[in-house]
Design a protein around this nucleic acid. Structure first.
Length: 733
DNA sequence: TCACTGGGGATTTTT
DNA sequence: TCCCCAGTGA
């Protein structure tokens, strides 16, 4: 039945084969970096299908990224061909969207729901705060979104949230905002990213027969990157697999770097406890990197306490040493990298062999400038995403409104884009009118009462309605790419851009054209070709999906974005205390361990060569900072290293800083830009870890860490702040 | 309604 | 430093 079926398992190592053969019951595969987990998953799927009575449609494989899903799908198709039809290999989100489209009416939404991204969320949330007559200054929307998202990750409903924080003034206000926000989402027939998971769980828990349907369907469930799952995803997975119990999860606790996004590392650490009779298989043989690279990665990660022990090994012994370079500043750091790349491309390496990885996006500029100076082609991942561009968001807003007229957020976005003389006042009136009738803005616009708005405004609104309703009719009979062109034309959007005739408007037009071609491509490859599916698919993609390895350019990106990728030569830059590990994590053991895992992820991206660089002096947000080497550098084994010029210092937090971290976290404020007051007026020798000082503005505090001229101080009632000694005079107490 | 300005804030972000 | 947003004046 399967081409090359069993015989191909001969290429697997013993552990891998064991993982492939273990198909029944709960299975945890601890797959170290580069240990061939996708190969195992793909072969395992093939093996499951060898079993009598199992069909492709009985298999569900879940990944986090589209890229991973696509890769797995391709590889499965390669060994199974048409046999793979009907199998679900998709991301958590697209799998849930698929389920919701069918059944969400049971939760009071309609199947034409739209998906809100982060900026839509923010708009909606600000509206909710306003409706509740609260002050945005006090309830910072980003902070509130954080709390809401956190709650959703943990499946905490607004009501439960309220109950938990009944006695906490501020948090109970946030609970009220959460409740209103959720109500408004529903009113707009919209889901945010978190809802996609949460609502699916809700659907399953409230509708036994729906759950049963999927439980029966999916006899075998596989989850990739299990270390990144949150509570909600954990719940989802355990619900679906409860009947057959054939749940296989693959993950690496050492690569858990999304804790701050709600990923719950205990999901993987406690798997054996949660799922009775679970088998655990460790894949420790690495096929990617040299021994030196692996030794370094192992040595760094060994400093973490919270982990399942694991030791990567390879039969590729030796290899190039890890090269450490100390630069004067970020400019020299960049030049070192571009020189090295030039040098190595004289030999066997192509531009596509290199990646430059940094901790924060802000670091990309110095790197870009250096690469440009040497005329090195590069591609940057992250930063402003294609779908985040204004013109793309505008056209998407039009499409969303056409699909789902309940979507007030999209309507408000484009009602006056391009300018049609419908101003803020008019929109406000329309909104409160709609609100009073418990309707959405668009439907309110369909039958306007006389005298509500001026006749001038009224005729403008009617024009707008007529454009949209025509487009809605067109959607019924037209394919998407054509519809998009119609939208751009009929709304006057394209015309306005053309009239502007600037370089900027030109790129916007280019981007819109690219958007149209993405629609054309969608029409060619997708089974369902309706607007609904198109909009969902673009809400669920990221720029990272477009990364193609082997191309002739250097890839530059954050360490987070690099997870799952590999490159022959990797540069990890900005290896300085305060940058990496970030100054926000050095005070907290858990966060520091996550930074260390991020470092582990970075190191294990390298196949042959790894460079680590740091700078003495770095300008951050227009201010000079002086740094010391990252503690992670000092954790590397000496005999794996080759240093150009660096003497690596050991970094330690003050051991006896007997400060209660929980207390500090409560009112953690960071990076208050302390204005230059008194110039260098401090005897640096007076600043020691643990010593008590007094700050002109913040009062008394204790010094908890020190890097160059930056000291971090825990203040009695102002939380923790980082102070640059160059600008502020501190008095020793 | 729109263009300008000044203040404040600025990890990481698979979907 | 650079970008976003709220507030202001024409």
């Amino acid at each position: 039945m399967i081409q090359g079926g069993k015989s191909s398992y001969q290429n697997l190592n013993e552990k891998q084969r064991e993982a492939v053969m273990t198909t029944e019951g709960p299975l945890l595969i601890l797959a170290g970096a580069g240990s061939g987990k996708t190969t195992v998953l793909v072969n395992r799927i093939g093996h499951i299908l060898d079993t009598n009575g199992v069909f492709p449609s009985n298999i569900l494989a879940i990944t986090f990224t589209n890229k991973a899903a696509r890769e797995m799908k391709e590889r499965v198709e390669r060994i199974l061909g048409d046999e793979s039809d009907g199998m679900w290999i998709s991301t958590f989100h697209s799998c849930c969207v698929r389920i919701l489209r069918k059944n969400i009416d049971r939760l009071g939404y309609t199947s034409s729901f739209v998906i809100y991204d982060r900026s839509d969320q923010l708009t909606l949330l600000k509206g909710a705060i306003k409706e509740l007559d609260m002050n945005e200054k006090l309830y910072d929307p980003k902070m509130v979104i954080g709390h809401i998202s956190d709650a959703k990750d943990k499946l905490i409903s607004p009501a439960e949230f309220m109950k938990t924080y009944r006695d906490d003034f501020k948090m109970s206000k946030i609970a009220a905002i959460y409740e209103r926000y959720q109500k408004n989402l529903k009113k707009n027939n919209a889901l945010d990213f978190d809802d996609i998971i949460v609502k699916t769980v809700e659907l399953f828990e409230k509708n036994e027969e729906v759950l049963e349907f999927y439980q029966r369907k999916f006899k075998y469930v596989m989850v990739d990157e299990y270390q990144d799952t949150n509570r909600a995803q954990y719940r989802l997975v355990s619900l679906i697999s409860r009947l057959h119990k054939n749940l296989c999860v693959v993950g690496d606790d050492d690569q858990s770097i999304y804790g701050w996004r709600g990923a719950d590392i205990t999901n993987i650490l406690n798997f054996e406890k949660e799922f009775n009779g679970a088998v655990v298989i460790k894949l420790e043989q690495n096929y990617r990197s040299t021994q030196n690279i692996l030794d370094s990665a192992n040595a760094v990660i060994k400093n973490n306490n919270e982990r399942k022990s694991k030791n990567l090994w390879t039969d590729k012994s030796g290899g190039e040493k890890i090269k450490v370079f100390k630069a004067m500043d970020e400019r020299e750091e960049g030049d070192f990298i571009s020189r090295k790349i030039r040098e190595l491309t004289e030999g066997d390496n192509g531009m596509g062999d290199f990646a430059v990885l940094y901790r924060t996006n802000a670091q990309s500029r110095a790197i870009e400038e250096a690469l440009m100076r040497q005329n090195i082609p590069y591609k940057i991942y992250g930063g402003l995403k294609f779908y985040d561009r204004k013109e793309i968001k505008d056209i998407i807003a039009y499409l969303r409104l056409i699909q789902n007229p309940l979507d007030d957020i999209s309507l408000k976005r484009i009602i006056n884009v391009p300018k049609r003389g419908i101003g803020l006042k008019t929109i406000e009136k329309l909104e409160s009118f709609a609100y009073s009738k418990e309707e959405n803005i668009y439907s309110a616009m369909l039958d306007l009462e006389d005298g509500l708005i001026s006749t001038r405004a009224k005729s403008k609104v009617e024009q707008f309605v007529s454009i949209i309703s025509t487009l809605m009719a067109m959607n019924e009979c037209m394919n998407i790419s054509l519809l998009i062109e119609k939208v751009l034309e009929d709304t006057g959007y394209m015309e306005e851009l053309k009239n502007e005739n600037s370089v900027e408007s030109q790129t916007r037009i280019e981007n819109l054209k690219e958007f149209i071609s993405s629609a054309v491509e969608f029409e060619q490859i997708s089974e369902e070709k309706d607007l609904e599916t198109f909009l969902a698919s673009i809400s669920l993609v990221s720029d990272l999906d477009s990364l193609e390895e082997g191309d002739d350019y250097v890839s530059i990106m954050t360490l987070h974005s690099a997870k799952g990728l590999e490159f022959p030569v990797v540069f990890m830059v900005g290896m300085e205390e305060g940058i990496f590990p970030s100054s926000r994590s050095v005070l907290d053991e858990d966060r520091l361990e996550e930074e260390r895992r991020l470092c582990y992820v970075g190191i294990t991206r390298a196949q042959q060569e790894l460079y680590m660089t740091y700078a003495n002096e770095r300008t951050i947000y227009g201010r000079k900072n002086y740094g010391t080497n990252s503690r992670f550098l000092s954790e590397l084994p000496q005999d794996c290293l080759q240093s150009y010029n660096a003497k690596i210092d050991k970094i330690k937090n003050h051991p006896s800083s007997n400060i209660d971290m929980r207390e500090i976290k409560k009112n953690f404020t960071f990076g208050s830009s302390v204005k230059p007051e008194v110039k260098k007026d401090i005897d640096n020798s007076g600043i020691e870890l643990g010593s008590r000082i007094s700050h002109p503005k913040f009062g008394e505090g204790t010094i908890v860490s020190k890097t160059g001229n930056d000291v971090t101080i825990a203040f009695e009632n102002k939380g923790v702040k980082m102070i640059n000694l160059e600008y502020v005079k501190l008095e020793k107490i």
